[in-house]
């Protein structure tokens, strides 16, 4: 675990020392800001504060997932491309520590960027009432969704030989997991229940938007994170045979 934290600290430093981290942070804040003005505040009819907040978390979930793909695509694939991965793989560090360290750093950065959007919900207080519970639930949902998306991205990055390929693989896996609920509409029980339960967004995120925290949804995102990181570790281990 010490090695994982060491790797995470170096990676986090790398986000802050290079342009890529600032570009991703700026892009997320810009897109969230535009969507906030266009949809949450700029609607024709009057809205309740809770609806404005729900809209905010709705579009923020999209930008969080996209940011997660961009943040995670470099984690392993870039190091493999530049040859720096050998420093880690030739050191007495377990593959799971490498994966965890990289995931922790990306998650910490994503969390910082996500929490930096907090001024938008805070603006609701100018003309409305803000439910702290809904804000807390919404941000918890964003962080859990971001964690799952980052873990899937880490798996994509471990599988790919280049960053572009990593982004394509991760994006495909994410889109696949998001649209899996469509299969529920064309299948019968109990299969449609399985598809609904597997869907990354459709069933599990909307409750957070509304300020509801279900243990089922929290467990789902944590399990997706765990399995994706477990698979990424296995990929790293398998690479030592290739």
């Amino acid at each position: 675990m010490k090695a994982a934290l060491l790797i995470a600290r170096r990676e986090l430093g790398s986000y802050l020392r290079t342009m890529s981290g600032y570009i991703i942070a700026a892009a997320v804040l810009l897109v969230d800001g535009i969507l906030w003005n266009a949809f949450a505040l700029g609607a024709q009819q009057d809205k309740h504060s809770a609806e404005v907040l729900s809209d905010f978390f709705y579009f923020s979930s999209g930008t969080t997932m996209i940011a997660a793909v961009f943040l995670s695509m470099r984690l392993v694939a870039e190091e493999r491309q530049t040859g720096t991965l050998v420093l880690l793989t030739s050191s007495p560090v377990r593959d799971r520590e490498i994966i965890l360290g990289k995931f922790f750093s990306a998650f910490a950065f994503l969390a910082m960027v996500t929490l930096a959007t907090a001024f938008m919900p805070a603006l609701i207080m100018v003309n409305g009432k803000l439910s702290i519970g809904q804000v807390a639930a919404g941000y918890l949902g964003l962080l859990l969704l971001g964690s799952a998306a980052l873990a899937i991205g880490t798996l994509g990055s471990a599988l790919a030989r280049s960053q572009v390929l990593a982004a394509i693989i991760s994006g495909s896996m994410l889109v696949g997991l998001i649209v899996v609920w469509l299969l529920a509409a064309v299948s019968e029980r109990p299969l449609n229940d399985v598809f609904l339960a597997l869907a990354l967004w459709g069933r599990h995120f909307p409750p957070f938007q509304a300020g509801v925290i279900n243990l089922r949804d929290v467990a789902y995102y944590l399990l997706v994170t765990y399995f994706a990181l477990f698979a990424a570790t296995r990929v790293m281990e398998a690479r030592r045979w290739q």
Binding site: L6, T82, G83, T84, L87, S91
Partner: peptide
Amino acid sequence: FLPDVPPLYDEMTVGAYLAFAARLRG
């Protein structure tokens, strides 16, 4: 181990990089 391409993190200083490598090796 020094591979054919030195595994260097371009954004780090020499001192910080060597300290990181040392800590990784225990």
